[in-house]
Simulated scan of single mutants.
Amino acid sequence: MSTRSRRPTADLPDLTPGVTLVDVDDDLGVTPVQALLLDRVLAGDGRAFWVDGANRANTTRLRDLAPADRVLNRIEVARGFTAHQHTSLLDRLAGRLTARESPSVVVATGLDGMYRTADISAELAEQLFIRAIASVARIARVHDVPVLVTRCRKDDFSRPLRRAAATHLQCRATPFGPRFKDTAGGEETLVYHTGDGWMQTTLAYWQEVLEHRARIHEASTLELAAGPVGVQ
């Protein structure tokens, strides 16, 4: 559903359980994925886990984006610096989560990045990449939660990741603001809340979006806690 009015809005896509591949314009960087991560943490009670394979896990930016510091206490970040290390991190996460409460969301940025390096053979790189995909798919299936993944390049090598994803979102820069589009269903969410028609992709823009979303989630939580109002 597109949001095209000039009234202040701050919409983000609703994430469904399963693997979701997010392709983001280079100009927008990883910030839209961080916004989705934080929004999911705000909406639920579980912890979030972010495994990075392309040096995209900027925790300073994540701290700046978070509407409150308490949100960050529920996010764990890990980085893989080699193909074997990255695969091991995802294997361990998948095994660890089977014995504890389900997470609110899992993010794996640059999932294909470590498997494109020249320090391992092409055959082994492909095997480890498929194993990494299987790990994130297992997490999504066992815990029935959204798992957000990104890729470094859209090519034949990363095609298995696209096939494994139940949902494919594209985040594009438009004159009206960043636009998330579901390539299968055609649904669009325009993250647009400026009154002058100009797009803002600065940190301040995404901070304002998340602050607005935090107020929405807080209001929903209060309504649920209050329960139905009876008439005596």
Rank of each mutant, 00 (worst) to 15 (best):
A214M: 04
L210F: 00
G185N: 05
W198D: 05
R179K: 05
T109V: 07
T150R: 11
Q200T: 10
G113P: 08
I133N: 06
G110I: 05
V147G: 12
R116Y: 11
P160S: 14
L161W: 09
R159P: 02
Q200M: 10
M199I: 05
V209W: 00
F176T: 01
R151I: 14
T109D: 08
M199Q: 08
T221Q: 13
E208S: 00
T174W: 02
C171M: 08
K154W: 12
A204K: 06
I216K: 04
S121D: 15
R162C: 10
C171R: 05
A214W: 04
D182G: 03
A219F: 12
H193G: 15
T183N: 09
H217L: 04
E211P: 00
T194A: 12
T201D: 13
T174A: 03
W206F: 14
M114L: 15
A204F: 03
G186Q: 03
E211N: 08
S121P: 06
C171H: 07
R179P: 01
A164K: 14
H168V: 14
L190H: 03
Y205W: 13
K181Y: 03
A134V: 04
E223P: 08
A225T: 09
I130N: 09
V145E: 01
Q207H: 01
K181N: 01
R213V: 13
A134G: 09
T189L: 05
L128W: 01
M199T: 12
G197T: 03
A226R: 15
Y115L: 08
P178N: 07
F180T: 01
Y205R: 02
I216M: 06
